[in-house]
Design a protein around this nucleic acid. Structure first.
Lengths: 194, 194
DNA sequence: GCACTGACAGATATTGAAATCTGTCAGTTC
DNA sequence: GAACTGACAGATTTCAATATCTGTCAGTGC
């Protein structure tokens, strides 16, 4: 047992461990409580439902994933280079997780399917970062005078094959980096001011 | 019973019916044989395994899906317009199937996961059509002097969100057509000769 | 001889009874 | 009295017995 106070934070850590160990299909609230040495009723004092607990785990995970991207977006320097670094980091992060610990990645991917709201908020934040970088590129004269929002969306859509977990099985294909680079060049050719 | 000769063609039709009715999880070779009024052993005289039968069903389905695209690719006229019509037809076809009969679409999508070879061949054929259209656009001076193969791949990758069944759930989002149009404009801006 | 059947072995799927889980809450503890 | 427990109802999952399916092949019938 543990005499530390039972906090949402401690519960989340235990929940992550349990999910990592048992996977999303087998992990139960009872398991989480057992790992903490408390009754499962106690867990329900801090989270109203199993779904809410899972959502919170996903939120923590996405917050960790998004931090380096927010950092890049806030950097100084040429917008085109920053955009490219941002997408490289996005793709590298996803790929590292997907290929590094396949099972854990599958677990988180499965969880995101039930946490649509959370995932949408994460997507909105990321999208805002792209849009801001595009807008900066336009303001500096580096990019054509396109609409920042629609262009950001076009970039986001165009690159989905390289970061969307639904495509994870394709990330092992040889030449995937070249394919991204070729696509990026085409997109930038359409975006850079003449 | 039926006194027509038992042919691969008749078996495929019955298999399609059975798959449509029961779905990929429940459809059995015994069901197909029952629908034809023969013993299941007879089916195995024409297809070496259940997997081969399913593959053949997928192959037929993909051949039907691909025909209109091949036709557009072989048309005359400006490459950029033809490319756009081709992608519009690809996307419209997928979307019509996905939203028209959700269950049947899910059935075929599930089948394609086990028919990788067949799907790859289909993808190669479609890819060759794009490449040919790009090459024609370059030859006519309409497009920049890009590499046809890498550019075709870039277009294929950039648009996957709009035709890949893994994204079918997103096809109902409002503004999806505008999003595709904006992406297309950006891509063409990068491709059309100055 | 050729197309087909039907019984078979081993693999897979179904089923329903038993076990476990989720979410609640009256009661216990400190 | 705030934090926690544990028993409970109803929902979901597990498990093992049972049924069905896949793929083969010797045998039947035309």
């Amino acid at each position: 047992m543990n005499d530390e106070a039972l906090t949402p934070e401690r519960i989340l850590e235990a929940a992550e461990d349990v999910l990592r160990r048992y996977g999303p299909a087998k992990a139960t609230v009872v398991d989480v409580a057992r790992a903490l040495g408390v009754s499962h009723g106690s867990v329900y004092r801090h989270f109203p439902s199993k779904a809410a607990l899972r959502d919170a785990v996903v939120e923590r995970w996405l917050a960790r994933s998004g931090a380096p991207l927010a950092k890049i977006a806030a950097d100084k320097g040429k917008a085109s280079r920053r955009l490219r670094r941002w997408f490289d980091a996005l793709i590298a992060g996803k790929r590292e997780k997907a290929l590094g610990d396949t099972e854990l990645f599958a677990t988180y991917y499965a969880l995101t399917k039930d946490a649509r709201e959370i995932v949408k908020a994460y997507g909105d934040t990321r999208f805002a970062e792209i849009e801001a970088m595009v807008a900066e590129g336009i303001a500096s004269g580096e990019f054509r005078r396109v609409d920042a929002k629609t262009t950001a969306l076009a970039l986001w859509n165009a690159t989905s094959r390289f970061y969307n977990p639904a495509h994870a099985s394709e990330w092992l294909q040889p030449g995937i980096d070249d394919a991204f680079d070729d696509l990026w060049k085409l997109l930038m050719h359409g975006l850079i001011a003449a």
